[in-house]
Amino acid sequence: MNRTTQRWIVGGIAIVISFVVFLVPFVFILLQAVKTAPDAGQLSFRWPQEWVFWDNLTTVLSTDDGLMGRAFWNSAVLTVGSVTIMVVLAAMVGYVLQRRPSRLNGVVSFFVLAGLIVPPAVVPTIWVLQKTHLFKSMSGMILIEATFGLSFCILLFRAFVATIPRDLDEAAVLDGAGPIRLFFSVVLPLLRPVVVTVIVVQSVTVFNDFAGPLYFLPGSDNATVQQTLYSFQSRTLSQYNLLFTDILLTTIPPLVLYVFFNRQIVAGMTSGAVKG
């Protein structure tokens, strides 16, 4: 067997595996989303007896006075807001941590790692939110999501800053750039690959978060898209057709994000990965 055939076989197997792992579940979602409730309840791969996708879609969109639309808006605000905070703050912290070694570094790194390891406690967090009058408000939720994601982002940025030559900083300082100008005009643009990675990874995490908004942002006006899923499923009566239509709708934004930014994600992940 020569090398080309071997490569073809390996490639073929890889394609088949990714097909099974990624496309089959997606096709399954699509199939259930076009069926009627009794048909979808069987959860089978059979061809739909009746195509009612449009009915399902309108039912899902009109449930609870158009909760779905509100939920999409809430999710968008939450995701954009918290990811912006994460990117800006984490880039700053990562930059300072890498560039300016001091005795505080150990302490800061400790807290960054603690942020990754220590699980968030729900009730005390709510107490803090109540004291600061941020409970049940979108701004409070944005800060919480930003806090949850910050540690991971700082680690990514810190590793990446190490790859930027110090000479660039020094040149900018010599040319008269102050610290703010130095960061925003010189360093941040160079961090682009890792910024894209952080945006994509954290957007998907925040967008997909179910438990966070459930506890910290109660109330049906504040529902995010993940919260709409449980409207269609319970122990006594399940409407799998509507559930899967809902899933289909919620899957679209992350999917689009991945399709467009696929290459940058991989580039950002690997460029910072091997340097400390």
Binding site: T132, H133, L134, M138, S139, G140, I142, L143
Partner: peptide, 11 residues
């Protein structure tokens, strides 16, 4: 920043 956000989000 938190306070500003709180101010704009209070209901």
């Amino acid at each position: 920043a938190g306070a500003a956000l709180a101010a704009c989000g209070s209901s």
